[in-house]
Design a protein around this nucleic acid. Sequence first.
DNA 1: GTCTATACTTTGATAGAC
DNA 2: GTCTATCAAAGTATAGAC
Lengths: 192, 192
Amino acid sequence: MTTAGTKERIVEASAECFRRRGYMGTGLKQIAADADAAFGSLYHFFPGGKEELGAEVIRRSGRMYMQLFIDIALEVPDVVDAVGRFFADAAKDVEESGYADACPIATVALEVSSVSEPLREACAEVFESWLSSSTEYFAGAGIDREEAGRLALQMLSLLEGAFIFSRAMRTTEPILVAGGAATKAVAAALGR
Amino acid sequence: MTTAGTKERIVEASAECFRRRGYMGTGLKQIAADADAAFGSLYHFFPGGKEELGAEVIRRSGRMYMQLFIDIALEVPDVVDAVGRFFADAAKDVEESGYADACPIATVALEVSSVSEPLREACAEVFESWLSSSTEYFAGAGIDREEAGRLALQMLSLLEGAFIFSRAMRTTEPILVAGGAATKAVAAALGR
DNA sequence: GTCTATACTTTGATAGAC
DNA sequence: GTCTATCAAAGTATAGAC
């Protein structure tokens, strides 16, 4: 059990800031303050500056968010139920955070996609890993592989889009409706 | 036929910048340069500064984007075909812009939702108008009103989420797959 | 209405003492 | 590794001549 090291605190503080205020809306000085770290420490751990820090935060946030889905999949045996739980939990998390914490990298992805190639690539890699994992998951439940790929894209698009509406409109309804559509699509693919 | 006035040029330049680089990633000096306007003109037309300009750009972009859908709906009589065309056109536009021009306000919406109440409200109003218009459209085609509302939320969530993946991964596949899912859902609601 | 100059703040980044 | 001081550039905003 290690007390959080400086580097870890920096990454965690950055992740929270990026998620809520975006990459462009977060200053390095704010991050240093939130992380209780000296400003110079940022450049000690991330010589490449904000962009290097951003790339690490994107990849780490992507891994952690996927883990949420994996945990549910391991706990809930039925695929349709698991998808339903994923959306229900997401709605709860968004609401409990005051509509601040939805997808950890969506804001950053949109901000950087036409601005920074390294950061865009980091986001693309995260999304590809989410999609391939979800595809495997659906295929493992007996769904045709091509259909599983489309289903993964559909489920994650529904989730990401619903997050946008939910945060702006301050209601969980979009996430709940998206969850209904996603579970329905998965059930249909399973022939239920 | 008026040559574009200064205010109009400012709003148009802002809209393009916000769409591609976001609200936080766009500086007022950049906007003035892109609009070929003196910096002081920004504050002449928008005494409230960046936030007032942002609110007007959000509302205007929202209206213009909805018009795209209305135009298609007027041109394509069948509802399922119209939805399919909407997604197909979106995919084409995204690709032809080098994956820069997708939703004009999604990036801004995510950036500002936890940062600026006036801007968050502007985004929420735009989204609500999109949803109510789409709901009317589906209801007009004979779909039960509650189901029409869910369908509108589903279609727009699919589109917005697909835009995120498309821009980051540089492929139109997410938009095309989302379009397939959306048309399928509409067809099912029509009992086809 | 246009345009320039300027004030003030914050940004990302660097250097160097400790 | 930590911390402070400092830099040049860019950020928003204002004042005032024209």
